[in-house]
Simulated scan of single mutants.
Amino acid sequence: MSRRDLSKEAWCWYHLTSEAFYRGAVESCRMVLAFFKEEALTRGLQDYGRNNQIYDAWKKHAQDLESGIALAKFGDYAKLDDAAAGIYSTNRGVTQHVWMGWLGDAEEKYHELTMIPGRYATRIRTTLAPGLRGGLYWIEDAATDSPESKNQDFGPTGDDILLLIQSGSEEKYPHLKATPVPSHFPGYAPDTSRPVRTGELVPWTGVWIPAAGLENHSLTFAIEGLPMPPSWRIIKTAEQLEQECVDSGKGKRNKNGLVFDDQGELLTFLDDELEITEMTWYPLLQVDEVERVVQRGRVEANQPCPVRGYWYTPAKQNSRALFEHGARMPDFPGSTYGATIWYWDDNQG
């Protein structure tokens, strides 16, 4: 595994769980829809076989993703997850059960286009899985499940998340042409004043970092109101497992670096060896966001609290209080002091 880069990984997690990414998925479905419609109409085959059904399916995928985006703004990501799962179902059904020969030379183009929403769907499901299912799994099933099952991570492990910013990503995820990967990634830092343990309810939706750091763990996306997921500790990377196979004599590496067994079968090591573990997590914020708030040192009443901590206002005696990130800052309109302005307390003890 390569040397981990927190800034890159954090940016990728935040982007993959952003509205911009989700809307990229919507547009990719519409691209398939437009292509399929044009090809069917040109040939006069819109009513042929299951063409109407396929057209309606892609139209529904775009609509379901739109609905999922709207609900996600209120903290409900289940619809978005279901919409992504539906894309798998359509692609699998078309590939396995529908004759597409009527498309002629355009059939290959159709399947190329459907791979794009397929990639979006894969990313949506894997990045949402820890927050949607990981915490409940820890509470309800992990203790009694088999090691083979419970040590399979729900989301991207290690630096796999960085696949988003590899060369050629704009072709795989077309929305990146309009929302490009930054040339300089912002810095991120944990807010250690807000620890949450696996199984506890998440107070804030966003990207979280394990207290153990990134060396053998991964970031996660946690959803407000759901149980905080566990972490899956990386015991051995896929590269280490491959090398162990070679060192033990069970596999031999050829001149191209591929590993084969004694029967000449290619051995592939795609997954890291993992172990599920309880973890303390901290929300991961942009460094400049935290520094800017603390340096400015003030926030107006009725605005959301930008950083968890102790704040006070001259508009009310003994007002010093602890506010959570996102909490509405109180207003005291009858105060003789005037407008209610809250100030950051330098003494956070």
Rank of each mutant, 00 (worst) to 15 (best):
Q46V: 10
E289K: 12
F332E: 00
K250T: 04
I69W: 03
R43M: 04
T90H: 05
T90G: 00
H217I: 02
F35K: 03
S149A: 09
K109Y: 05
N254L: 04
P180H: 13
H61C: 15
N256P: 00
Y77H: 13
D331P: 03
D272N: 15
P314D: 00
Y14R: 13
I209S: 06
L284S: 04
I124F: 14
E39R: 11
E278R: 11
G249C: 12
Y188P: 13
E215R: 07
I87E: 02
L33T: 00
Y110D: 03
L219R: 09
W102H: 05
T144K: 11
Y88S: 05
A327C: 07
V307E: 10
I234A: 04
D153S: 13
G168P: 14
Q96N: 06
T268D: 06
E244K: 12
R3T: 14
V98P: 01
Q240A: 14
F332P: 02
A25K: 05
D82R: 08
M1S: 15
P304L: 10
G135Y: 01
R194N: 03
G187M: 11
V196S: 07
V26P: 10
R233H: 11
L214I: 09
N52D: 00
E108M: 04
N91A: 02
T157Q: 13
Y282R: 07
E19K: 14
T313F: 09
S67V: 09
R197T: 12
P130I: 01
W281C: 01
K252G: 02
T198F: 03
G326C: 10
S335T: 12
A129S: 15
H97N: 15
S319C: 07
G251N: 01
I223E: 08
G225H: 11
E275A: 12
T192L: 09
K177S: 11
V246I: 15
Y22P: 00
H175G: 03
Y88K: 14
G309A: 07
R123C: 06
P314A: 02
P227L: 10
D288A: 07
S67G: 04
E19F: 01
Y48E: 06
Q240I: 06
S167I: 04
C305Q: 10
W344G: 06
R197G: 01
I276Y: 01
E200M: 11
H111R: 12
G118V: 03
T192Q: 14
L274A: 05
H97S: 15
G199H: 05
S183L: 11
E200N: 13
E278G: 12
R296C: 13
E38K: 15
Q152M: 13
E275C: 07
P174G: 01
G297I: 05
S231R: 10
